[in-house]
Design a protein around this nucleic acid. Sequence first.
DNA 1: GTCTATAAAAGGATAGAC
DNA 2: GTCTATCCTTTTATAGAC
Lengths: 214, 214
Amino acid sequence: MGQAAAAQVSANDGALSAKRGAILTGASEIFLNVGYGAASMDAIAQAAGVSKQTVYAHFGAKDTLFEAIIQQKCDDLLAPASAMEEDCRDVAVVLRDIAERFINAILSPENMRLFRAIVGESTRFPELAEAFYRAGPRKAADGLAAYLEAVNERRELCVANPKRSAELFFAMLRNDLYMRRVLGIDRSFDQNEAAPLVDQAVRAFIDAHRCEET
Amino acid sequence: MGQAAAAQVSANDGALSAKRGAILTGASEIFLNVGYGAASMDAIAQAAGVSKQTVYAHFGAKDTLFEAIIQQKCDDLLAPASAMEEDCRDVAVVLRDIAERFINAILSPENMRLFRAIVGESTRFPELAEAFYRAGPRKAADGLAAYLEAVNERRELCVANPKRSAELFFAMLRNDLYMRRVLGIDRSFDQNEAAPLVDQAVRAFIDAHRCEET
DNA sequence: GTCTATAAAAGGATAGAC
DNA sequence: GTCTATCCTTTTATAGAC
């Protein structure tokens, strides 16, 4: 019996994060699909393939589990960060590059579901809403602002207020499409819809920041 | 007994919409403040000042009540509609006017709460999400597109695709501020924050649609 | 139509064995 | 750590008197 117990303990130690990982995965699935309110702990346990008590053993309660999930997803958003101040290609090319990456990121089904879940509970979990904002929109705008400042010094464009201009650029990219996707009106992830938005935004942005050539 | 019954019936007829109105008001308050999931029928009945059974007598169930409320709010959005194709003032002036009305409308606490409630339940109630989109963003863009078409024919601006340009204009106005408000990060309804956005959007829009003066 | 009281079910959280 | 079985609160919805 002692041996059996020891074997089981070591097995548990070895698989320390196995169950925990399963819970995180299952809970993500449920929370992001149906939102906080409609997600039941039973459904989460079932999706994770563990018992409900195991879920409670790892995370104390439903709200802390939700916070852990969402916080992790927000941190993942921070990952693809790259400095672009040094990028010396033509401004239009760089902007187009940034635009395509941005629009693919925000329109991804993953990000859509995350955003919906956070908006729905922004009153109950204000910290999560702020974490999302910082990891997503804020970080993107800061990165672009740094690039625009360099562009301004190189006299390639005339950017009086980099932060404001960066926010404008991303706002133009979200356009109506982001709204439609958030509302679930456009279900498909149609690449062809996004391409014209990139064109439009880059062109309009450059027109609005062209240096006066008196 | 026949007389008493008749009297009661007529009394009920007279106050037919009194209780119903109270329910609509109370339910709006609850639903828009805490969302569909967190709203209990008890809380709604209490807010309306009626018994729970009265709520069920008027609206069969929680979801139909929610639909009735949200649908009504969306219809209210449609009310302030005015044709502006005929407005012959300077384009910059008209756009500024449109911009200010738009930004005040979408940033109003009322609209914010409506939007959050709809987004949170866009999976469960897709029709409501679509109703909101049509009554709000879609309708605003259509109205501006009609105006831009007239402007284009008058050669005041060069607008190749009125619908696309209209969507761009409103996207520029939402900017980062709409996102922050939706997430509940900016709590206050600060007018001073919106004014620079109007400036920026009108200027950028005109720059991007200026007719070539070869 | 409106109320009070109650049924019926779902869901968050815990107890105790292993 | 993990499971099965259970508790208890909340919540939707209904019954029946007036």
